[in-house]
Computed example of a mutant assay.
Amino acid sequence: MGDAERADETLIPCFERMAPDEWFVGKDYLHVLSNYQLDVDNIMDLSHIDYLHSGTLGSPGSESAETEVRQEGDTVYSLRLVRNERLSPELEKRNGVEPGSRFDRWLDVRWEPPGVMELIVGRAPTGNPEPRNVGNAMYFFHLFTPESETTTHYWFAVSKHKSGGEAAKEAVSSDIQFLKKPFETEDLPMLEAQQRTMGCDADFWELKPVLLSVDGPGVRARRVLDALIKAEQEAAEVGQ
């Protein structure tokens, strides 16, 4: 996993919403048979929820999504807003909303290299020009650690502020159990099929992937990571 002497705790990203003194944090783990950068790609492009998770996390709306890619230093943001959306029946039930209600829903991802991500999912009654300023949000975390070139340790979490009391504590446990099924039975088979198709030794860019507009956030994260890896390798060569 690298040279332990070069570890710098000051570079660890700060995710305040995982602080256990103020937040209830539900956590779980999956072992993924794919390269960690494929796993990052999957979260950076959340248009996939509309078809891969159509019965659980998604709903028709990709064609109307407002998207933005933003970079601040080495941090990349993937911002996604779908207006006038009806949640899936499963999400309506879990969130206690009237069936058929319409919302503006956003899914905003913050990526920190090499594979640490915070996902903010929020919704507001449709019609407000700035729904992020008036709606409610939930917080999810995806942490990918490479085990090998083709396998990954995947920790995921959800948090709710302790001001919500016992109901918030119970909710994080329920949310984790709910999320694990689509992650395990829908995301993992797709990612592992990608890895098998690519093979064990192929370089991602040498495969000349066809890139779509929705791939912008993942491509930006890959470019940042490529530059960081190159800089580290060059520094190591100089130090030899």
Score class of each variant (00 low, 15 high):
residue 177 Q to E: 15
residue 187 D to F: 03
residue 72 E to L: 09
residue 37 Q to A: 13
residue 58 G to H: 05
residue 158 V to E: 10
residue 58 G to N: 07
residue 126 T to D: 04
residue 186 E to H: 07
residue 113 P to F: 01
residue 198 M to Q: 02
residue 185 T to V: 12
residue 23 W to S: 09
residue 31 H to V: 10
residue 41 D to L: 06
residue 147 E to I: 10
residue 39 D to I: 06
residue 203 D to T: 01
residue 158 V to R: 06
residue 109 V to E: 11
residue 184 E to I: 03
residue 185 T to K: 14
residue 103 F to S: 05
residue 1 M to G: 12
residue 49 I to L: 13
residue 170 E to T: 11
residue 128 N to M: 02
residue 25 V to T: 07
residue 17 R to S: 00
residue 106 W to S: 00
residue 72 E to K: 09
residue 4 A to E: 10
residue 232 E to G: 10
residue 206 E to P: 01
residue 230 K to L: 15
residue 151 T to V: 00
residue 215 D to F: 01
residue 31 H to S: 14
residue 127 G to N: 01
residue 61 G to S: 05
residue 172 V to C: 01
residue 109 V to M: 13
residue 83 R to M: 14
residue 107 L to S: 11
residue 6 R to N: 02
residue 115 G to F: 04
residue 105 R to E: 03
residue 122 G to Q: 03
residue 17 R to D: 05
residue 49 I to N: 07
residue 116 V to E: 13
residue 27 K to T: 07
residue 185 T to A: 14
residue 232 E to H: 02
residue 52 L to I: 02
residue 68 E to Q: 11
residue 97 V to N: 04
residue 11 L to T: 09
residue 66 E to W: 00
residue 161 H to F: 11
residue 96 G to L: 12
residue 179 L to P: 05
residue 181 K to S: 07
residue 141 F to T: 05
residue 9 E to Q: 11
residue 217 P to R: 03
residue 113 P to E: 01
residue 116 V to N: 15
residue 70 R to P: 03
residue 240 Q to G: 14
residue 121 V to I: 08
residue 221 A to M: 15
residue 185 T to S: 13
residue 149 E to N: 04
residue 173 S to N: 15
residue 4 A to F: 09
residue 186 E to V: 04
residue 60 P to T: 07
residue 128 N to P: 03
residue 47 S to F: 09
residue 134 V to Y: 13
residue 211 L to W: 11
residue 224 V to Q: 10
residue 224 V to M: 09
residue 19 A to S: 09
residue 225 L to F: 15
residue 63 E to Q: 14
residue 31 H to I: 08
residue 58 G to Y: 08
residue 190 M to A: 13
residue 52 L to P: 03
residue 155 W to H: 15
residue 51 Y to R: 06
residue 225 L to G: 12
residue 20 P to Q: 06
residue 191 L to H: 01
residue 189 P to R: 08
residue 138 M to V: 10
residue 149 E to G: 02
residue 114 P to A: 05
residue 238 V to R: 07
residue 19 A to M: 03
residue 216 G to S: 12
residue 98 E to I: 08
residue 12 I to L: 09
residue 166 E to L: 14
residue 49 I to T: 11
residue 109 V to C: 14
residue 4 A to H: 10
residue 94 R to P: 02
residue 212 L to Q: 13
residue 66 E to N: 00
residue 33 L to T: 08
residue 158 V to C: 13
residue 117 M to V: 05
residue 171 A to E: 14
residue 198 M to W: 00
residue 92 E to A: 01
residue 58 G to P: 05
residue 138 M to N: 13
residue 138 M to E: 14
residue 207 L to M: 06
residue 129 P to N: 10
residue 213 S to L: 07
residue 190 M to G: 02
residue 131 P to E: 10
residue 81 L to F: 00
residue 198 M to V: 00
residue 219 V to R: 13
residue 230 K to S: 14
residue 228 L to F: 09
residue 24 F to S: 06
residue 68 E to N: 07
residue 84 N to I: 02
residue 139 Y to G: 08
residue 60 P to S: 06
residue 101 S to R: 09
residue 118 E to I: 01
residue 187 D to I: 08
residue 177 Q to D: 15
residue 84 N to Q: 06
residue 118 E to N: 02
residue 226 D to P: 04
residue 92 E to N: 12
residue 84 N to W: 00
residue 57 L to W: 06
residue 135 G to M: 11
residue 51 Y to C: 07
residue 107 L to Y: 11
